[in-house]
Write a protein that binds this DNA or RNA. Structure first.
Lengths: 346, 346
DNA sequence: CTGAAAGCGCTAACAA
DNA sequence: TTGTTAGCGCTTTCAG
């Protein structure tokens, strides 16, 4: 294995020379731009293949596009986000765009840093999944670079958005449990104080939907909420809190699957059985929920579809930055499994 | 909300003008480079802050670095990879490097495309997690850009590597089960045919380690392998196959946690209990394994540590591309939980 | 349809 | 220590 140094980069100039045309011509072929005859196109493409030429995204970005789409994911371990990402990459497969993910942005500050990093890298478009930033900030970002916001409600003049109807999702759960005879249906929510986020974030919408559905079913008096966080531990603590109340709930609607798992642990620890003593439902219908031994009833949001819609809207907007913003709202469904059952007679 | 257009980008020239210095001076401050007095440094930093200047990574990349580290992750849903990533980002926090993840590279072809995309984008360094590409290809890549390979054995003159001792991990499981009195210990492996990968990929090393440990414990006659894949379904099919043999195994060592989960489903379907009738152990000690109701005995690889080591090596190599390559090998430990127990009397 | 030339924002080599 | 200048590799006018 000889340690020969990497040869000099093949540039557009090399290709032009090899194909006996101008660099402009090569550039046009690269971008499928108007104004290149089929003959020239063929010549150039052959030269590209023969030299193994690959355009430098950095250089392209300095004048035109980088053909890079940045996706901000707040939490890699959330399997629902992986579904969204699958939808994005599937929709973008076959185009010239490459998806890059920016990780680890928990909290407004880290999120700001990550978004800046993507803008600094001249990305052509941004998909922000469940961003927590202030709305003014999102608008500012969207004005600099085409942006689609996924999983956050509320419209904006600057960006497109894709969201699932979280109010409807919560209603699905409450109706399902109420139909099974439950009345003391409790909810574990992700604590929220910020005014705008109370109106736009999915967690807040789910809590709203829960309250609304309870009232609609005449169960306003049984509304019972533990306010923790959308984590395994949050579910554990929330369930502990709810179980300590008398009378304790006969069903718990957790705002996310991981929360439901935490709740299941607390319930098991308390020596209660699911769904015998208490029913549990989650949200997201992640792979965890469908896993046999868990078999969690959960609200299904079509993450792939959401991702595909987001990517489609983004590519659209890159092509026409001035078109009017669009809001896509999908409807959730309920995957009923073995953690929910008719209320037991007491 | 007035729809004012985004103002022109603030460039290094604006900063230089504002601070009354040359662009070189600004550049030096940006890079913490030698040759700028504290006074000038202060002036420039103030100007940067006042103008809200952010350097363009594309422009920087054309001459120098992009301050971007690319991480290739074959499968976002693998929680072990998320641990590695946490280690990488933690190690890189506080530096000027930004981590970007390239997703969805299952298979050699997709992997090649993704690696090319990262090179095209002038990334300063690459972390390749469990790459399946041919070794010659990896060496070629490493010659173009500083590269660290994680989770693949075998050394190279071109890249650093970080791996867990998979042979030792498999031995931990076999020893644990043998100590519990098991003799018919079966294994579910990820099918592999390629010669080099048979020597370098973790799955192959685990199968080797299993065979070796069985022989060492005098259980060579009980070696029993189902060859499927490292997926939930692979575990399900593998366990079904193993259970159909007579006499059936009293313990199954699955090559990964997801495989173990699939096996658990097959075992439950067969009407057998764990660990009463059969013990099950996994590999990776992912969040799934420690989740209460599952409580899977599993081999723990310190993913965070692996990621941190990889990042450290990469930054080192970016600073000195000619230093000799290093191989880091970590030792796994065994997390014993409730899916393994003493063999039952028959 | 084709090509020459300017310049995107920055860094590196060099000069002062 | 500081500033001047020449590109990095590409896209984009704008002539031909």
């Amino acid at each position: 294995m000889v340690d020969k140094p990497a040869p000099r980069r093949v540039t557009i100039i090399d290709v032009a020379r090899h194909a006996q045309v101008s660099t402009t011509a090569v550039s046009k072929v690269l971008r499928n731009a108007y104004g290149a005859s089929p003959a020239m196109r063929a010549k150039v493409q052959q030269a590209i293949a023969e030299l193994g030429y690959r355009p430098s995204a950095a250089a392209r970005g300095l004048r035109g596009q980088t053909y890079t789409i940045g996706v901000m994911i707040p939490e890699l371990r959330n399997l629902f986000f992986a579904d969204i990402l699958d939808g994005i990459t599937a929709q973008l497969a076959g185009t010239d765009y490459q998806v890059l993910i920016a990780p680890g942005c928990n909290g407004e500050k880290a999120e700001a840093r990550v978004i800046d990093a993507m803008i600094d890298r001249s990305m052509d478009g941004l998909v922000l999944i469940a961003p927590v930033s202030a709305k003014t900030r999102l608008i500012e970002v969207a004005r600099r670079v085409p942006t689609v916001v996924v999983g956050r409600h509320g419209s904006s003049p600057a960006y497109d958005s894709v969201a699932d109807d979280d109010v409807a999702g919560a209603a699905l759960v409450v109706d399902h449990l109420a139909d099974l005879g439950h009345r003391r249906i409790a909810h574990i929510e992700h604590h929220e104080t910020d005014r705008v986020r109370l109106a736009e974030m999915p967690n807040a919408r789910r809590a709203d939907g829960y309250r609304e559905a309870m009232r609609r079913r005449g169960l306003a008096g049984f509304i019972d909420i533990a306010s923790t966080s959308y984590t395994h531990d949050g579910g554990y603590r929330g369930a502990k809190e709810l179980l300590s109340r008398a009378p304790r709930p006969t069903a718990i609607f957790a705002g996310a699957d991981v929360v439901a798992l935490g709740a299941l642990e607390a319930i098991a620890e308390a020596g209660l059985s699911v769904p015998g003593d208490i029913s549990v439902a989650g949200y997201d219908n992640s792979a965890l929920a469908s896993f046999g031994p868990i078999s969690l009833t959960s609200v299904d949001q079509d993450g792939r579809q959401m991702g595909a819609d987001a990517a489609r809207l983004l590519v659209d907007r890159i092509a026409d930055r001035d078109r009017r913003p669009v809001q896509v709202q999908l409807s959730p469904t309920l995957a009923v499994r073995r953690t929910t059952a008719a209320v037991s007679l007491e």
